[in-house]
Design a protein around this nucleic acid. Structure first.
Length: 552
RNA sequence: GGGCUGGUAGCUCAGUUAGGGAGAGCGUCUGGCUUUUAACCAGACGGUCGGGGGUUCAACUCCCUCCCAGCCCGCCA
């Protein structure tokens, strides 16, 4: 088989799929049919090194697989979504940012960086948790990732790669690869120039210093051990020093190089489908297919390549600090909107612009409307029909109440929950007969939008001032405010107040803008704000009157 | 240098699998909501579909070529 085959193979050209996950489900079913269709449960895998904070890019690995798993489940298959924490990999460089056990980002300076630095070259599972809580560095970050998955409603079977070696799961693969080291070498050499006659596809852990080494001098198949010398290891532009120790390691005291380990995982976990980023598409994947077929003698899973997305127009980068975590994002968005983000076309490189989250939310709301009531957009409707149930996890009988995100941000200018609800009702966003729980759910968006407005300090970042701001007005402005107060005291409605602002300004020979500005100053301590008259009309009249008179 | 993926309106994206009308939402502008101030409504403006060439009656779509971005082709994962 062509090792470069990509995901478009075996797609039935007659079957158009509105949702990409259906296409992959088709491929997986076709693959199953080839060997009798008795392969349940279907195994979908993903995996990352627990090298540091799991940012939203890493969540691709989880969410892309999730949608395919969900589609297959809906078709009646039993599906396991497994995820490997590739935690026997060595720590190669210190991350600049970490995250504590609640997911809050902290700088490297806040932990014992020196202690961490001494662990370069050791497997993540052999490094202490910098926060001193879990059994290892790996366990700390794996727990965070697992928590993210849970918050997104994705059930995962998380595997520690180290554990797979330790408990013997990997034994048959290691044995096989080392027994067929010549073949392994021959296959891999087609993909990696560095693979020469001395290459051994195994990296032992040095019994002296605990670091992974790559200089194996002898394989003893009978004893199932290798001899090694702990030499220096080049990692990028830095060198991790070996201790020079010459020793012997068992097949479990080390690991396969990634190019073999990945296909090995397919074998021991029985993987049917695996999504991966475009970085793997041209490197590990072709060699992995070749190794699976010609070294391990297994069939590789159905692949899927996803494009990377950018954050605020720039590449995601832990070192540059351009990352966002699920924890952070959940303060700004409902989980279904994060899932929606990963439901859209994985082949397109997209940008997640945190300053324009309103756009993403609007898109989601529209997507949701398309599911409940066909919009005049066939593509969107077809996509929503296929994807929406998996995005929301539980489909409500009726379309949930949604406040437009920017409107929610406007409501976030006031703190009083009852007032927020009143405004939303007045504006027609909440049906009169709406259920209490549904309203509560809808209003929950306000807090997220408020957080968004504050964090971006954007045009919605105003807050109703509960205390009288320090102000100074010209006499005629002050007079105008007093007479406006009179209008409000007489029980004017919002619309009437709005009209009165214009009238009053004219009567007092003021530019309308100046009076508006005075009003915004009094209520928001700003020069601009939401539509003032209607806003004031919804506030308590006594409060408005007192404030307009600069009394409280 | 070779390969893979992407490039459609100011922004976010559909549409390319199978050639036939260039689209949506948001933003902007204008108008309405009794008279510039963000929530609501209506309309308009807005694109050489990255550039060029070719095939075709017809190209965003197929072919060639070039440009831009990311990734892979060293190591590592």
């Amino acid at each position: 088989m062509d090792p470069r085959r990509m995901s478009d193979e075996s797609v039935d050209s007659d079957s158009y799929r509105a949702f990409w996950a259906d296409e992959f489900a088709d491929q997986i079913e076709a693959r199953l049919a080839e060997h009798g269709g008795s392969d349940d449960p279907i195994v979908i895998k993903g995996g990352v090194s627990p090298s540091g904070v799991a940012h939203l890019g890493n969540i691709n690995e989880i969410m892309r697989g999730f949608f395919v798993a969900e589609v297959l489940r809906a078709r009646g298959h039993e599906v396991r979504q497994v995820f490997t924490s590739d935690d026997k990999d060595p720590l190669r460089k210190l991350p600049r940012k970490l995250a504590d056990s609640s997911g809050e980002i902290v700088g490297l300076g806040e932990v014992d960086a020196g202690a961490l630095g001494r662990n370069l070259g050791k497997p993540y599972t052999a490094i202490p948790d910098p926060f001193g809580e879990r059994e290892s560095y790996a366990a700390h970050f794996a727990a965070l990732l697992e928590a993210d998955a849970e918050r997104l409603g994705v059930p995962l079977d998380l595997y520690s790669n180290t554990a797979l070696y330790a408990d013997g799961t990997f034994d048959p693969v290691v044995r096989h690869v080392l027994k067929n080291a010549d073949r392994a070498r021959e296959v891999l050499s087609q993909y990696q120039a560095k693979v020469d006659a001395d290459y051994v596809p195994f990296n032992p852990v040095c019994s002296e210093c605990g670091k992974l080494t790559e200089t194996v001098t002898n394989i003893d198949l009978a004893a199932e051990t290798v001899d090694y010398i702990c030499t220096d290891m080049n990692v990028g532009d830095t060198t991790i020093e070996g201790c020079g120790h010459e020793g012997t390691a068992s097949f479990r005291a080390g690991k396969l190089p990634w190019r073999f380990e990945w296909p090995g995982q397919w074998q021991v976990l029985g993987v049917d489908f695996e999504p991966f980023g475009k970085d793997h598409a041209e490197g590990s994947w072709p060699s992995g297919v070749d190794i699976a077929e010609n070294v391990l003698d297994i069939e590789p899973p159905v692949p899927m390549v996803y494009e990377w997305f950018t954050l605020n127009g720039e590449a995601l980068s832990s070192s540059a600090g351009n990352i966002v975590t699920v924890t952070e994002l959940l303060e700004l968005l409902e989980p279904e909107i994060i899932r929606y983000f990963f439901a859209i076309n994985p082949k397109k490189a997209r940008d997640l612009d945190l300053s324009r989250l309103d756009q993403l939310v609007d898109d989601f709301d529209r997507f949701e409307r398309a599911y409940y009531a066909a919009l005049d957009d066939e593509r969107l409707t077809a996509f929503a029909e296929a994807a929406y149930p998996h995005v929301v996890r539980e489909v409500a009988d009726e379309r949930p109440i949604r406040l437009p995100y920017t409107f929610a941000a406007v409501l976030g200018m006031v703190d009083d929950p009852a007032f927020r609800e009143k405004l939303a009702r007045d504006e027609g966003h909440i049906p009169a007969d709406a259920d209490e729980r549904d309203i509560e759910r809808a209003l929950a968006r306000i807090q997220k939008a408020r957080e968004w407005a504050e964090r971006n300090d954007n045009q919605y970042n105003y807050r109703l001032q509960t205390e009288l701001p320090a102000t100074e007005f010209d006499t005629n402005v002050a007079d105008a405010l007093d007479s406006l107060a009179g209008v409000v005291a007489d029980g004017a409605t919002g619309e009437e107040i709005q009209a009165a602002i214009y009238d009053t300004a004219r009567e007092h020979d003021l530019a309308v803008g100046d009076l508006f500005e005075a009003g915004y100053r009094l209520f928001f301590d700003e020069t601009q704000g939401p539509r003032l008259g209607e806003f004031l009309g919804d506030l308590e009249a006594d409060f408005v009157v007192g404030r307009l008179r600069r009394e409280r």
